[in-house]
Design a protein around this nucleic acid. Structure first.
Lengths: 330, 330
DNA sequence: CTGTTAGCGCGTTCAG
DNA sequence: CTGAACGCGCTAACAG
């Protein structure tokens, strides 16, 4: 079916080596040979076989991306940023969903490794096993870092971002501030929780009964939020550690007929398309998600290009965007 | 760096062929040999080399996905559904963004072909060139179909979906119903526009000045919506042909201080996470997006498995979900 | 059951 | 500048 270099060579009346040289654009070739080869390649519809090329060059020009779920807008934006950067260099993205499950993640990593990706960026699952990453291929972690894994990582300033949210709420006069987060086994979440705790503790306002920690899905966030908000002594403000948690709180607030911001102030982590479409528009800690993917891509390309040296950790800044979900400043 | 079958064979004291047989799990091997090979494979940390395997088996166990932009929730959900189906069969997803640009699409297709994907599902760009798809590898189109391209396609009943939206509006007493859509070169959009026109024409209410057709981005949709809604004789209801258009109309309505549904009724095509979070919750024509990806995956696998026969077109149903953006029934 | 021998398609010496 | 010859890592006959 597929036409090979050999076919083209025969048609052009040259050796396979010569044809390979002009098609692969390396080594010498006379003007005449080059023209003949190129024309018969076009005529026969030659398509280079990357898998054969990869076998000898030991480079697939492919990078792997392992995320929790591409259907989560955070991961989708990351994928976009990464894809933009690596595609410009001729790489293609191999995608795998791990669903925040270490086993699926291990399998995904094994598959990518078998396919001999030139490098990979991974958003590690909670309780990920550092050993499953250990092997020669360049790796950069994104959003979270696995304990005991010596590899590049690009993340945001999670603690500072969370702190900015809590301080904003404090400045508005709130004293009972809750948090809804997913598992602290996710390093970014644990850093956000830590930032939240640090600020409240400094103000003597930390109340552990207002800390609600649950699963990673919208549904679990919804349940967690209900648990926190149904109580008579519910918090007057809530900080959510990621977009799914924000979604869950919004749903719960609606069910309990809590008006935002009058009955409940809200600051979410991560900005999304729809945060300014809801009523009131949401005050959020925005993170440069696409940029996260781009920076991870650049880091990875640098490693693929042979950069050595100790693991590098890059932190990007978050930005508090004040909209309407906390009411007006006093 | 990488340990090969030959290395394992040597360590286990058997021939390379025998080691290959147990590692590849095909052909005969005695219990003893199998054990020795497996243990040395584990000890050496053997990872099968899929690129070598693919070279001889002529199957990469990889399928390509070409979408407009993975950052669009519609495409992300499609990717998820497709990924679920093909991963279960051991395939991995190779992802490419074409940004609704035929040139980028052509390049993406060429790259995927070079990488020798076993098949691909493509959401064709507007004005896509049928010729760029023509080649042996199994292909299924998703959401839209290219004119003159004889290939499987899985789509929704676009015209019927649009009609259900317009009829809903008509039933509520609206007589000036507008539409905001992206380019009709996208077959799904043109079918939605056609459905809209058909119903209104049947009622003698079609007014071409209420038809607003623009680009595919949120920004262009926003501008188009402003153009339609700023006029004194603006429509009392709008149907939007996809989620970006819905976003644009919502933004424009807010800027013009049009209250929904009192000043403007809205039905959107495509349901999203946030449609029930906005106020009022949006009435939409919901399409089974993840299912679209799954069905495309099954179609593709069938073709990869050797199914022959004429192109098959599959249409999935949409469903009108009535929420609050059109007000109450009279 | 096992080892030997060929390739898969392409990049890469190394003589001409 | 060009061709012959070899090897990347693995699957696939085919004799033993």
């Amino acid at each position: 079916m597929a036409v090979t270099v050999k076919d083209v060579a025969r048609a052009a009346g040259v050796s396979q080596a010569t044809a390979a040289r002009v098609l692969g654009d390396y080594g010498y070739a006379s003007e005449g040979a080059r023209r003949r080869v190129e024309s018969s390649a076009r005529r026969l519809g030659y398509t280079p076989n990357h898998v054969a090329r990869a076998l000898v060059s030991r480079a697939t020009e492919t990078v792997g991306l392992v995320v929790g779920d591409i259907d989560n807008p955070f991961f989708a934006a990351v994928a976009r940023g990464l894809s933009d950067v690596v595609e410009r260099r001729g790489y293609t993205l191999l995608l795998a969903n791990a669903d925040e499950d270490p086993d699926r993640e291990r399998r995904a990593l094994r598959a990518l490794r078998s396919k001999r990706v030139d490098g990979m960026v991974v958003v590690p699952a909670p309780r990920a096993d550092p050993a499953s990453f250990a092997d020669g291929t360049p790796l950069v972690q994104l959003d979270r870092a696995v304990r005991g894994l010596a590899a590049d990582a690009v993340m945001v300033h999670n603690a500072a971002g969370a702190a900015s949210a809590v301080e904003h709420l404090l400045g508005l006069g709130h004293t009972r501030i809750g948090i809804v987060s997913d598992a602290p086994q996710i390093s970014s979440s644990s850093e956000r929780i830590a930032g939240y705790r640090r600020v409240l503790r400094a103000h003597g306002l930390l109340d552990e009964s207002l800390v609600s920690i649950g699963g990673s899905s919208r549904e679990e966030a919804h349940r967690a939020a209900l648990g926190l908000l149904e109580r008579p002594d519910r918090p007057t403000a809530v900080f959510t550690a990621n977009n799914f948690m924000t979604h869950g709180v919004l749903l719960a607030a609606r069910e309990l007929r809590l008006r935002i911001p009058r009955d409940l102030a809200l600051v979410g982590f991560d900005d999304l398309d729809w945060t300014m479409l809801v009523d009131p528009p949401l005050t959020v800690v925005s993170q440069p998600v696409t940029e996260l993917g781009r920076v991870a891509g650049e880091r990875l390309l640098a490693r693929i290009d042979g950069e050595t040296g100790p693991p590098r950790r890059v932190r990007l800044d978050t930005r508090l965007i004040v909209r309407g979900s906390c009411g007006a400043m006093l």
